[in-house]
């Protein structure tokens, strides 16, 4: 029974390691990337709204925007480093949207203490979200 348990642990580790080395973006992963991007855009919009209404502290706004930018950049890097499988279309469009989203959040981060300066990024993030939503409904 002990050997069986050790084998189970070993197999688990192997599976986890092998899963972390995928390079090709499957259709399912591309769809998952789109959903994650839409989630980031929606969260960015919600966060900017909260900052505009002074419902979050400045430290929270700055720190959470930074974490969000980090997550978006991580996803963009994953997409950059993989090649799309046949049928996994739209990754190029997604890359552009994620770059734009990062840019807007960097601008928002510079304006966390200036609600008026957040109006521009808020509008652009809204556009990005709508575009991602259209892309999702066309799937």
């Amino acid at each position: 029974m002990a050997k069986g348990f050790q084998a189970l642990l070993f197999t688990t580790l192997l599976l986890l390691i092998s899963c972390s080395h995928e390079k090709t973006r499957t259709q399912d992963e591309a769809r998952s990337d789109l959903i994650a991007s839409l989630s980031f855009a929606s969260e960015a919009e919600l966060l900017i709204d909260e900052i505009q209404q002074s419902r979050v502290t400045e430290h929270y706004a700055d720190g959470h925007l930074d974490y969000l930018i980090g997550e978006i950049e991580r996803l963009a890097k994953q997409i950059d480093e993989s090649s799309p499988e046949a049928g996994a279309q739209g990754l190029e469009h997604l890359r552009t949207e994620l770059q734009d989203l990062t840019k807007e959040l960097i601008t928002a981060r510079l304006n966390v203490d200036n609600p008026a300066g957040l109006a521009g990024p808020r509008a652009k993030v809204d556009e990005i979200r709508r575009s991602l939503q259209r892309a999702q409904s066309s799937l």
Partner: peptide, 20 residues
């Protein structure tokens, strides 16, 4: 809002959502 909360800060934001 189609948000998948993948950050700890996102969950704490929800904990105070109706308030300031």
């Amino acid at each position: 809002r189609h948000i998948f909360p993948d950050l700890l800060g996102t969950a704490t934001l929800a904990g105070a959502f109706p308030f300031a």
